[in-house]
Amino acid sequence: MHKPELVVKNLRYYARYIVVCLLLNKMDLVKDLVKDLSDEIEDYTHRFNTEDQLEWNLVLQEVAAFIEVRPFGSVLG
């Protein structure tokens, strides 16, 4: 991906997918996706010298906080 807009679209996809996996209690997948998202954010901010790195890091922090306080078992059940 050579355009920052396409990379941001990909980052948003990762974030949405992580939320779905959290709701489905797919914690192993969530951990992999968070690692991938973190790597993608780092690559994005270095390649395009963006100013929104803090916002994307906040997304990662919020996911981590949700994982920490999330009770065992499914949210829906």
Rank of each mutant, 00 (worst) to 15 (best):
M1Y: 08
M1N: 09
P4H: 10
P4C: 05
P4N: 10
L6R: 09
V7F: 05
K9T: 05
K9S: 14
K9H: 14
R12S: 12
R12I: 08
R12Q: 15
Y13D: 08
Y13H: 11
Y14H: 01
Y14G: 00
R16A: 15
Y17W: 07
I18E: 01
I18M: 00
V19E: 10
V20C: 06
V20E: 13
V20N: 08
C21F: 04
C21I: 03
C21L: 11
L22H: 06
L23Q: 13
K26Q: 13
D28N: 14
D28C: 10
K31E: 15
K35L: 14
D36F: 14
L37P: 00
S38F: 06
D39P: 00
D39V: 14
E40G: 04
I41H: 03
E42Y: 12
Y44S: 02
H46W: 10
R47A: 08
R47F: 06
R47G: 04
N49F: 07
N49G: 10
T50N: 06
E51I: 08
E51M: 09
D52C: 01
D52F: 01
Q53R: 15
E55Y: 08
N57T: 09
N57V: 12
L58Y: 12
V59M: 02
V59N: 01
V63Q: 00
A64G: 12
A64H: 14
A64V: 07
A65H: 13
F66K: 10
I67G: 04
I67W: 03
V69I: 11
P71Q: 12
P71E: 10
S74H: 15
S74D: 14
L76G: 05
